[in-house]
Design a protein around this nucleic acid. Structure first.
Lengths: 218, 218
DNA sequence: CAAGTCAAGATTGCATACAATTTTTGCGTC
DNA sequence: GACGCAAAAATTGTATGCAATCTTGACTTG
């Protein structure tokens, strides 16, 4: 439970990258001992959302542009295959779930404000996770959960505020292809979709980050 | 350190699938408290080598044939892409490391006995991990570490004793393609190679496993 | 004699206490 | 006023103790 609460806060960027997650402080907030906090932090460290330093503590991950590229390279490698599998296995119940997720996304696109943006990033990730679930491979689903979480963090960090984070209708078209069981087309659209997301990022800030990071550590 | 020792023991099948890993017992063996043992077991649980049950304890994973298939499906999806990346980035030092790994493998192929078989499975996995390291994506490397570990467990469980587990020279041919920087060919060979490994397994024991599993739990 | 029940033992889950390390802070000196 | 050093405060790493849960085996009962 604590892990999920922290993960949500990190992905929503309520916890800024670099923030120190003191065991005692987190424990006080949740009214639990450091023991369980440590377990939660260890899990998040495995997911790459938290960076743990020996004898120094845990910090909200601050992915570099290079790490951001690795996240999207990984997704470009894995997700098209997931789309192929999902196209083969998709059923009526799955399609209904997709339609509901899409409706939620489009509703959020109309809203304004930072909380709507957060919800939008989250909903967009859920679409991809739903597809991974339909593909029916638990291991790949776990990988995708990690990649989507890291993507959300990267988008929150490097996303251009102007452009909308994800769906220019991409999700809708991908779902259409899945419904037609056209795995090849779904795969192709998904690949383009990941390109779109990455192009929306501003990964040029490679230099100078080390200094700001030191400042952000508080 | 404890995590690595346990992982090696699991992969080498010195710890049989289903074996209970009691916190107190493991702690006594390593002369540490249950606290650190719990941390190690949590990590292995994340890697899928250990199955943790609430209030019951941790057990060496006993992958079902279906899980085994998912492992190899995942590898079929990811590894060809890694081969492509590795072909682009491979350097002289990498090739030297590959040659050394291959020499070790072929030496092991000549030896007899269960300990040579274990070392062979391990060396075979190291070849794939080396390729992932050369590919230069830390996230994919971590995924591959998990997949290779799980594969080793699956091979130990379902491998036919007759056929040699991995290299019918496959690794050598893949390395040749990498040296020529022929990513497409390396990718194709790797895909076939994974098929070879999976064909060497006997995954038909789907039924009746539940009973044997209950017995193996001790 | 089989089946259900309950108590004793064992094991995990969590909290807390102590040790080790790092960070901060205060003092002295240049 | 700046720098260096040392002591104190804070934080993490590990061990241990107690409570909760599960397992086991004997005992009761139909």
């Amino acid at each position: 439970m604590i892990r999920d609460a922290l993960r949500d806060a990190i992905i929503d960027r309520r916890l800024a990258p670099g923030t120190k997650l003191s065991e005692a402080e987190v424990g006080a907030l949740f009214h639990v001992s450091r023991t369980v906090v440590r377990a939660a932090l260890q899990m998040l460290s495995f997911e790459g959302l938290v960076r743990a330093e020996r004898n120094r503590g845990a910090f909200v991950a601050n992915p570099t542009p290079d790490e951001a590229r690795q996240v999207f390279d990984s997704r470009r490698l894995i997700e098209p295959g997931i789309a192929m599998a999902a196209a083969e296995r998709i059923g009526a119940a799955d399609i209904a779930a997709f339609r509901m997720a899409l409706a939620g996304e489009e509703r959020l696109l109309g809203e304004r404000g930072p909380s709507a943006r957060r919800a939008e990033i989250r909903a967009s990730g859920d679409f991809h996770l739903l597809m991974a679930a339909v593909a029916g491979n638990a291991i790949l689903l776990k990988f995708m959960e990690e990649l989507v979480a890291r993507s959300s963090l990267v988008i929150a960090l490097y996303g251009r505020s102007g452009a909308s984070s994800c769906g220019h209708g991409d999700h809708g078209r991908i779902l259409s292809a899945l419904e037609r069981r056209d795995g090849v087309e779904a795969s192709r659209l998904l690949s383009l979709h990941i390109d779109h997301i990455e192009m929306d990022l501003d990964l040029r800030v490679a230099e100078g980050m080390a200094l700001r990071e030191a400042l952000a550590t508080e």
